[in-house]
Design a binder for these strands. Structure first.
Length: 795
DNA sequence: ATAGGGTTAG
């Protein structure tokens, strides 16, 4: 009889066979045995607890927790009660390989069936909780630990510290750590890596010092845990002292420590040291190779990173890891090498990495940083799964390329898709609001940031300050600024810029005083902000003083941008010769851009002789931007040299310096209405033009004459008047007047500088329409009120 | 131990 084969006497044989499979982790053989048991053994055998126990262990050891679970469930209830160890092993299996929620389910089942968890149970459930970031369940389990008086066990408490650390609850972790009766090196390491993972370098280092003071020796794990933060904070001095500590203990030969050391040196910018450690390591693994490639990318040695990629394939064989490729792609982004980026993209597809979140997100970012918004969008849309990083990458990518409105739409899509915006998402969203002057969206973003606790972050507050400043809400910006618990140089700069673009130069300088009194060191950007603030307010003496002070007292050598601002300041004030002299006596060669600033000043003060001299310089240098062409063109048209003007236009086209079309927009109830010159595409276009004509008639009655010098075409006066009337900023203002309630101020944003004729016209319009109008152009705010503008003609 | 998204100026 077949059933005879399944007698109890043959069980031992099966059990032994299973045991060898468990030891050798041989899934294939194990499955064969399992199947033959099913086929030939019949019921008795199949429910034999020893067999089921072994089978469960087999699948656990082969990392098949779900298969194991199925067998485990067959063990009869009374038997299962005595198998605490097996329960623990099942939970551990899920905690390692997932699905993590199953680990928690099993734990609950265990507790419900009256089995007391042991100190070996808790660490695994907690591990599963931290993998899911399930703080609530973890805290519940912490309660169970206390109830079972296991809160004096090193093993369990270390697991609790680890759990809290991974969930970002540093205070809770520290509390558990502090209450531990005895602490071994592993416990200390858990706390150290907690501070390290959360970027709290001083706490991490302090803890290592304290552990040494208490007579405990840091081991290689301690060092490996602390090196990443040291690198992140570029604390070279501390890094070197840990390095020498490693040399004394011989830890440097350890791959993990060695990799950590080379990574740390790379992040500190010392590629020479990183290379040296890399070549000294006898054993290098995948991570080591990725780390050294990363060090090259960080230190701008791109060629070397590509070489290393090839070298690794030759020396180690096999294909590079996703991490390594993502790192090289990051290098392409840094180099702006779209071609190489595309090639790597193909390579990644070939290797089958196109399902990896990290890899795909790097590609989105690379395309965006290389200025190819189309590729970025296309690739982003094609991704089957998108996480918050994908959205963050595409949102900032759009903003970086000037597609701020699209960025807002993507932010909206993100929420519809149920993906929660993270801090870094807001770092793309808020600048998009700044760009668009999208106050209503910006305020929502502020609210959301408060709710999520992001406003504790300096960078978020800086982005908020900038957003409010660019939306014309200086009070709100200052409020955020004042309430920050900690500021950095960016905070001060953002606020100084705010005063500058609002024409409040004196306030900008006062804030600079406060900054110094507060013990903050200004940087290059601080002075760019200050100088441009002076230029917007006509503060010539103050600006000149700041320019000399920056190198003499603050040891910051003026760069092109500082000359740019100072020439602008002098030029606008009519000090053309002084501006000219500054350019010719500066310690490096001026570029076309800088001459262009002087040219613009010549145009303001109608100095044709100097302008011609300057334009010659620009022509020999080769115009560097569409702006150069525009100014030259304008200059010739003022001089009515139509032939020269036409030549400039032709040259501009041939060289591919197309001028950006002027475009203005206005936010009405959170919706943007954009206009280009002569735009008839708006739904209410006819109403807008009717309003403009009405205003025009009234303006003329008050003495307005179209300033036709702002039309640089050889056309007759009437035609010029029309071209001017339909400038985008006028269209947007007219739409504001007809769509916003009379008591609401009108705010229009323009992507170029506001035109001179429009500037005059808007003064009249404030009188006629009895409304306040604000225009933000690329360089500053213009607040029009009762026939005047806040800019005082400095723009 | 390596790895994806980020603020200010021109």
């Amino acid at each position: 009889m077949m059933r005879n084969r399944g007698t109890l006497s043959s069980i031992d044989g099966y059990l032994q066979l299973l045991e060898t499979c468990i030891e050798s982790k041989s899934l294939k053989q194990g499955k064969i045995i399992h199947q033959s048991l099913l086929k030939f053994s019949g019921e008795d055998f199949n429910s034999h607890s020893l067999v089921l126990d072994k089978l469960t262990r087999l699948y656990i050891s082969c990392k098949r927790p779900q298969l194991a679970h199925r067998v485990f469930d067959k063990i009869a209830q009374p038997e299962r009660k005595n198998k605490t160890i097996l329960w623990n092993q099942m939970i551990r299996a899920y905690a390692w390989d997932g699905p993590f929620e199953k680990a928690v389910d099993l734990y609950d089942e265990m507790v419900d069936s009256g089995i007391k968890p042991t100190k070996y149970t808790y660490p695994f459930v907690l591990k599963a909780c931290s993998a899911m970031h399930d703080v609530e369940t973890g805290v519940k389990i912490h309660g169970h630990v206390k109830r079972h008086n296991l809160d004096n066990d090193v093993y369990v408490c270390t697991a609790l510290v680890n759990f809290y650390v991974k969930c970002g609850c540093l205070e809770e972790a520290r509390e558990v750590f502090d209450e531990m009766l005895e602490r071994d090196v592993v416990a200390w390491n858990a706390m150290v890596s907690g501070y390290s993972l959360n970027g709290m370098y001083w706490d991490a280092i302090g803890l290592v010092l304290e552990m040494q003071r208490r007579g405990l020796e840091p081991n290689s794990s301690t060092v490996a845990a602390i090196l990443p933060v040291i690198g992140e904070a570029s604390m070279l001095k501390e890094g070197k002292s840990f390095h020498s500590f490693c040399l004394r203990r011989g830890f440097d030969r350890d791959v993990v420590v060695g990799t950590g050391l080379l990574d740390m040196y790379g992040k500190c910018g010392l590629l020479v040291y990183a290379r040296r450690i890399f070549s000294s390591l006898a054993f290098k693994n995948e991570v080591t190779w990725s780390a050294v490639v990363g060090a090259c990318v960080t230190c701008n040695s791109m060629g070397e990173s590509f070489e290393l990629l090839g070298k690794m394939r030759k020396e180690v064989g096999g294909s590079p890891s996703p991490v390594m490729l993502a790192t090289v792609v990051r290098g392409c982004a840094k180099l702006n090498d779209l071609n190489m980026g595309r090639q790597l993209h193909c390579y990644m597809i070939k290797l089958g990495f196109s399902f990896d979140f990290m890899v795909c997100n790097t590609l989105v970012s690379m395309y965006a940083k290389c200025g190819s918004r189309n590729d970025a969008i296309r690739f982003f849309e094609e991704m089957q799964a998108k996480d918050s990083v994908s959205y963050s990458a595409i949102i900032s990518g759009c903003v970086q390329n000037g597609y701020a409105e699209e960025a807002l739409q993507l932010f909206h899509k993100m929420q519809l898709a149920g993906v929660e915006p993270e801090l870094a998402t807001m770092m793309g969203f808020l600048p998009a609001c700044s760009y668009l002057a999208a106050l209503q969206h910006g305020v929502c973003g502020h609210g959301y940031s408060i709710v999520r606790g992001f406003t504790a972050d300096i960078s978020i507050c800086n982005a908020l300050i900038d957003m409010y400043n660019k939306c014309g809400k200086m009070d709100a910006a200052r409020h955020v600024f004042n309430r920050m618990h900690e500021k950095d140089v960016v905070s001060w700069n953002a606020m100084i810029v705010g005063y500058g673009i609002h024409g409040l130069g004196k306030e900008a300088i006062l804030l600079f005083q406060d900054m110094q009194n507060g013990g903050y060191e200004p940087d290059e950007i601080t002075f760019i902000a200050l100088l441009s603030a002076c230029s917007h307010s006509g503060l010539v003496t103050e600006g000149k003083h700041l320019f000399s002070v920056m190198s003499q007292e603050f040891n910051i050598a003026p760069k092109m941008d500082h000359y740019f601002c100072t020439v602008d300041l002098l030029g606008r004030a009519g000090l053309l010769d002084e501006a000219h002299k500054l350019i010719t006596t500066m310690p490096f060669e001026p570029d076309a851009h800088l001459w262009n600033v002087l040219l613009a000043a010549c145009r303001i003060h109608n100095n044709i002789e100097l302008a011609e001299e300057v334009s010659e310089k620009i022509q020999t240098l080769g115009p560097a931007s569409p702006g150069n062409f525009v100014l030259l063109y304008n200059l010739y048209t003022i001089a009515q040299r139509w032939h020269d003007a036409a030549n400039i236009r032709i040259q501009q086209k041939e060289l591919g310096f197309e001028k950006k079309p002027g475009c203005s927009w206005i936010e009405v109830n959170g919706i943007f209405h954009g206009f280009v010159g002569g735009d008839c595409s708006h739904q209410e276009s006819s109403k807008i033009y009717k309003k403009l004509e009405e205003l025009m008639a009234e303006m003329k009655r008050l003495g307005y004459a179209a300033e036709s010098q702002f039309v640089y075409h050889d056309v007759d006066e009437e035609e010029k008047e029309k071209i001017l009337l339909y400038h985008s900023e006028k269209l947007a203002v007219a739409y504001g007047i007809i769509s916003l309630k009379p008591d609401k101020p009108i705010m229009v944003t323009k992507n170029l500088r506001v035109c001179g004729d429009c500037h005059t016209a808007l003064k009249y319009i404030t009188i006629i329409a009895k409304r306040e109008i604000t225009v933000r152009d690329t360089s500053r705010f213009h607040h029009f009120k009762n026939g005047t503008c806040s800019c005082g003609e400095f723009w």
